[in-house]
Nucleic acid binder design. Structure first.
Lengths: 213, 213
DNA sequence: TCGTATTCGATACACCCGTATTCCTACGTG
DNA sequence: CACGTAGGAATACGGGTGTATCGAATACGA
């Protein structure tokens, strides 16, 4: 066998180029040619490592997800140094595109999300990520309630769904409104949400639409 | 002058075809040819009414926005028959893709949002819509507070930003998770959010990160 | 009734797309 | 050293893209 290269390293090199293009110009700008140019090699080279453009996109998505998941996993929402409201606020803020690194990740995430709306393959990857996230968050809420840091009576799964949707919504809002003065408004929104959730005296946990008394 | 055609009507006919394609297959599937086929005419016909594909997309976006804005304008959040929490909940639920019509609108909205992340022209249109929405919502919160239906002490602009982000986040969540059983979870999340916001005893309105007592 | 201006379909053009093929280079091994 | 093979570049190919151009209908004013 003649000279061989680190396949996995090359694949990641190409995937990184692809993600840079998404981050800069969006998913529509991704083509085999633009990616190979960004990666500094020829079309044939990227073809050697990915059988098709689709496989390349899937690999890049998985790469992006793995990295984001790694960063999220570092957030300790359980028993820690901070009070529960502070930890929750820190977790949400950590998710938002407030520095260049998270801005890049968010733009990539947004692009893949939009494609997932019409592409079942990508949708499966994304929603497969959602279930454990929601469950973990729900467990965190259950724990917080058990130690008295969260008022009782909440539906923890609904709360998890709510917080995840809020994080996504704030992420989109910041992506679409890059003006620096938007940061403070969004931080205040996070603050209001965390304070409301943790200060509420929960009454019923059901999901019905019965009028509030 | 020879035979005369209702230009505006034709433009809307083409724009409708374009929006149907976005709703069905996403923005990537939009080309001059696919749109003309969907509209049941030739490429030359759509070219007569839109100088370029870009103009066609902009017109379609404005059409979609006008319709969505019209539907949102029908929601009365001011003094009405419902209590404030119920009205707020109804407004949020009205925004979500829970029937075919709103599902179509949401898919279109999502596609344009993703494009707006990397296209300043579309971004300007979308964010131009955001300012009045946020202001109006803030005024609604101020009114609700003034009549005692919302606890005092909240930053109304932050609250408006929060609610809009929550609506968008829940919309995306439902778009990516079309399973019917997700509906109840999301409705429960709306319920939890509305109850938390309207039941909270607001303390401070600042956006700081001071630890909760 | 006869132009003439307008609608609109057909088609041409140059370019970019994803993929397949081809061919040269350069290295690890015999 | 020479051989064979993996690595990678170049390029071909069929098809889709946005746009421009050209003709053929058509319906009104003269």
């Amino acid at each position: 066998m003649p000279r061989h290269v680190d396949r996995e390293e090359r694949r990641h090199h190409v995937a990184d180029a692809l993600l840079r293009i998404i981050e800069r110009e969006g998913l529509e700008a991704v083509s085999v040619r633009t990616v190979s140019a960004e990666a500094g090699c020829s079309v044939g080279a990227v073809q050697r490592y990915f059988r098709s453009k689709d496989e390349m996109l899937r690999f890049a998505l998985e790469t992006a997800i793995t990295r984001a998941a790694g960063r999220m996993a570092e957030i300790r929402l359980g028993p820690g140094l901070m009070s529960f409201p502070d930890a929750l606020r820190a977790a949400v803020v950590e998710y938002l595109p407030l520095d260049d690194g998270r801005l890049a990740e968010s733009r990539i995430w947004a692009a893949f999300s939009a494609r997932a709306v019409v592409d079942p393959t990508f949708r499966a990857v994304i929603t497969g990520l959602d279930r454990p996230a929601r469950d973990q968050l729900a467990r965190v809420f259950a724990y917080a309630e058990s130690v008295g840091e969260l008022p009782a009576g909440h539906d923890h799964e609904a709360l998890a769904c709510l917080v995840i949707a809020l994080m996504d919504g704030l992420m989109w809002s910041l992506l679409l409104r890059p003006a620096p003065e938007e940061r403070s408004v969004h931080l205040a929104a996070v603050d209001a949400a965390v304070r409301s959730l943790t200060a509420t005296v929960g009454r019923r946990a059901g999901g019905g639409a019965e009028p509030a008394p």
